[in-house]
């Protein structure tokens, strides 16, 4: 996650910035997913929740033992967030394509140079 944030700040190439943004949001997804994990009695990890008729913290496996399941809420939230992040990337890349057409480059420094020259001339 922090690698992504660093990339957004430090990289001057716009494509790389977009990739860093993607990394950053993926980091956040993992953060949410990891907080959903229930490790139970440290032997059994939580599994996918199965609806057994009433909200229960655990359900029985085939051998009749209780198995804890993960909190499904963060997973659901992240489904939405993944869609959001994909759309952000799509818009970012679309704008970058347009920038490339208008300026002929995707390096931020070069674009700043071009703009500075325009302002003078």
């Amino acid at each position: 996650m922090m690698i992504g944030l660093y990339g957004v700040i430090a990289k001057r190439n716009m494509i790389k910035q977009a990739i860093s943004l993607g990394l950053f949001s993926t980091g956040i997804f993992l953060f949410y997913i990891s907080m959903a994990v229930i490790s139970g009695n440290f032997v059994e990890m939580g599994t996918a929740p199965i609806w057994v008729g009433e909200p229960a913290k655990a359900y029985e496996n085939t051998a009749g033992r209780m198995i804890p399941y993960d909190n499904p809420l963060p997973h659901v939230l992240m489904l939405t967030a993944i869609v959001v992040s994909v759309s952000i990337l799509a818009v970012a890349l679309a704008i970058i394509v347009n920038i490339r057409r208008a300026y002929g480059t995707v390096e931020e420094d070069e674009i700043l140079d071009i703009e500075a020259q325009e302002a003078e001339g």
Partner: peptide
């Protein structure tokens, strides 16, 4: 175009921060 991209990058970082904050609160 460049203005919009700059806004996009900063804005997304801002929104990600908000998302993180909400995540901690949810936790």
């Amino acid at each position: 175009l460049t203005a919009s991209l700059r806004y996009l990058i900063l804005g997304s970082v801002g929104a990600s921060f908000i998302l993180l904050g909400i995540g901690y609160l949810l936790m």
